[in-house]
């Protein structure tokens, strides 16, 4: 689906990626996580042909994305963190933009809008930023493009809308679609993503399917000072300590604590990755 090979990219003298290799397969929702400035948005822009690599390639279904060919763009949609919608009705917006996307589904659009409690007869000029974002996300999902990139999609959404967002995205997911959600608000994508990709400064720190993470790691709360032996990472929590441990034979599977994993990877990516190599 998307193959990134030996990617090198910099803004002037500030190097963002050096020799990055990464693939995104179809049928998965990827959570692209990282601190501010780690290069999450930059990676999405490179994937959509909005930025050009200094060295290396970014290919989507065999298309070199720096060429921005219409065939590739018709199968890709990006929801940027900040965007401009024209001052017109949503119906008119759909009428003007939908013909560019061969797999656009009006039914999906109406279903997504209903999921957010919205209707298509709204004027985009009169919507708040959060409402605009919901309308735009609905349109993005309705395009049915095989690659959907979302940059901080939950920014500006109220709390009920964040859970509606997860529901709507999950409903629109298909086996031949790839959704990449870049966010620093890791809780917002919990229970939604199939793969966790964590970016560090200039490099990829962690890239693993959720099922494999749960197979190799456990996330437990314990009293302060009673951290289990061989803990990879621990941090203070309401109960004492939240701990990431390597999962041993006979250990029960635990629910993925994505925030804890994120902190563990940022603190010591090598130890976390070793847990996967060891088993």
């Amino acid at each position: 689906m998307v193959t990134i090979s030996n990617l090198q990219f910099s803004y002037g003298s500030h190097e963002v990626f050096s020799n990055l290799n990464l693939t995104f397969d179809e049928g998965k929702i990827y959570g692209l996580l990282g601190l501010n400035g780690a290069g999450k948005s930059t990676l999405l822009y490179l994937m959509s042909g909005l930025l050009f690599a200094k060295n290396g390639t970014v290919e989507f279904n065999g298309h070199n994305m720096s060429r921005r060919s219409p065939d590739a763009l018709a199968n890709l949609f990006i929801v940027p963190e900040e965007f401009d919608l024209p001052a017109m009705t949503f119906e008119r917006y759909v009428l003007l933009n939908a013909p560019f996307y061969p797999n656009f589904s009006r039914e999906t659009l109406d279903r997504c809008l209903a999921g957010f409690g919205m209707t298509a007869d709204m004027n985009l000029a009169r919507l708040s930023m959060g409402q605009k974002k919901k309308a735009f996300v609905c349109f993005a999902l309705a395009t049915n493009t095989s690659l959907l990139l979302m940059d901080e999609p939950t920014n500006g959404l109220d709390i009920p809308s964040k859970s509606q967002f997860r529901k709507v995205v999950a409903e629109c997911m298909t086996d031949n679609r790839t959704i990449i959600i870049s966010t620093h608000q890791v809780r917002d994508v919990e229970n939604l993503i199939d793969n966790v990709t964590i970016m560090g400064s200039r490099q990829l720190l962690f890239d693993m399917p959720v099922a494999q993470i749960c197979d190799h790691l456990t996330f437990v709360d314990c009293k302060l000072g009673q951290e289990p032996e061989g803990a990879i990472y621990s941090q203070p929590s309401a109960l004492g300590s939240a701990v990431v441990c390597g999962r041993k034979a006979g250990d029960d599977e635990t629910t993925l604590d994505i925030e804890l994993l994120f902190n563990a990877v940022l603190a010591n990516a090598e130890s976390v990755n070793q847990a996967f190599a060891a088993k």
């Binding site: 959509s48 763009l73 990006i78 560019f100």
Partner: peptide, 18 residues
């Protein structure tokens, strides 16, 4: 001129020439 508009415009599925 503005990045918010530029993203939508450059990723619109049409060729650069069009």
């Amino acid at each position: 001129q503005r990045p918010e508009r530029k993203i939508g415009y450059l990723t619109l599925p049409a060729s650069n020439a069009e």
